[in-house]
Computed example of a mutant assay.
Amino acid sequence: MLSILDKYILKRYLGTFLLLLLLFIPIGITVNLAEKIDKILENEVPFIEVAKYYLDFTIYFANLLFPLFLFLSVIWFTSKLANNTEVIAFLSSGVSYYRFLRPYMIGATIVCVGALILGMYLAPMASKGFNEFKYKYLKKGKQDRAQSNMYRQINDNDYIYVSYFNVKEKTGNNFTLEHFEGNEMKYKLSASRIRYNEKDSSYTLYNYKKRIVGENDDRLLKETKLDTVFPFEMEDLTPVEYIAETLNFTELNDFIQREKAKGSSYINRYEVVRYKRWSLPVSAYILTVIAVAVSSVKRRGGMGVNLAIGIAIGMVFIFFDKIFGTMAEQSTFSPFIATWFPNIVFGILAIYLLKNAKR
Rank of each mutant, 00 (worst) to 15 (best):
Y161R: 09
F336E: 07
K298C: 03
F324A: 12
A308Y: 04
L20T: 09
I311P: 07
F69L: 06
K188A: 11
T326F: 14
K188C: 09
G107D: 02
T339N: 07
L68F: 02
Y266W: 13
L349N: 04
L237W: 06
V213N: 12
Y164T: 07
K7N: 09
T228G: 07
M185S: 12
N174C: 01
K140Q: 06
F133Q: 05
A308W: 00
P67Y: 01
Y97W: 06
M234C: 14
W278A: 14
R359M: 10
H179A: 02
A123K: 12
T16G: 07
V74F: 00
I212G: 12
L72S: 03
Y164D: 11
N63A: 09
F232L: 04
K170V: 01
L221E: 14
K262G: 11
V294N: 09
I106W: 01
L226T: 11
Y159L: 05
K209N: 06
V87M: 06
L10D: 05
A261K: 15
R195V: 13
A82H: 05
Y137I: 12
F47C: 12
K188P: 09
T171V: 15
T250H: 15
I286A: 02
K168N: 13
A293D: 08
V31M: 07
L70N: 09
L14W: 00
K80H: 02
I48P: 07
E245I: 00
L70W: 01
I212D: 13
A338S: 11
L205P: 04
T246P: 03
Y97F: 10
I311M: 13
L101S: 04
D218M: 05
P103S: 02
L68P: 03
M150W: 10
N173V: 14
P124A: 01
L21Q: 06
G325M: 00
L353E: 02
L287G: 03
Q257F: 11
M327T: 13
C112S: 11
Y352N: 15
M125Y: 13
L226M: 15
E233Q: 09
A62F: 05
K80G: 10
V316P: 07
Y54R: 01
S190A: 00
K355S: 09
K36D: 15
V111P: 04
Y159M: 08
R152D: 01
K140P: 04
P26M: 00
L116K: 04
G310I: 00
A328T: 04
F336V: 07
V95G: 01
I348P: 08
N253W: 13
I59T: 03
T16Q: 02
L252M: 10
V213L: 07
K136R: 13
V316D: 06
M303G: 13
R277I: 01
G325F: 00
N83T: 10
S265R: 15
V345F: 01
D156M: 03
T288F: 00
A244T: 04
K142T: 14
L91P: 08
G129P: 04
L307R: 04
K36F: 08
K358A: 15
F324W: 10
L81M: 02
K52A: 11
T78F: 01
M150T: 11
G94A: 08
L72E: 08
Q330G: 14
L18I: 13
L2P: 14
V74I: 04
F24N: 12
V213C: 08
D38E: 14
P281D: 06
L5Q: 10
Q257V: 08
V113L: 10
N131M: 04
E86V: 01
I37G: 11
A291Y: 00
Y60H: 05
P103K: 06
Y159A: 00
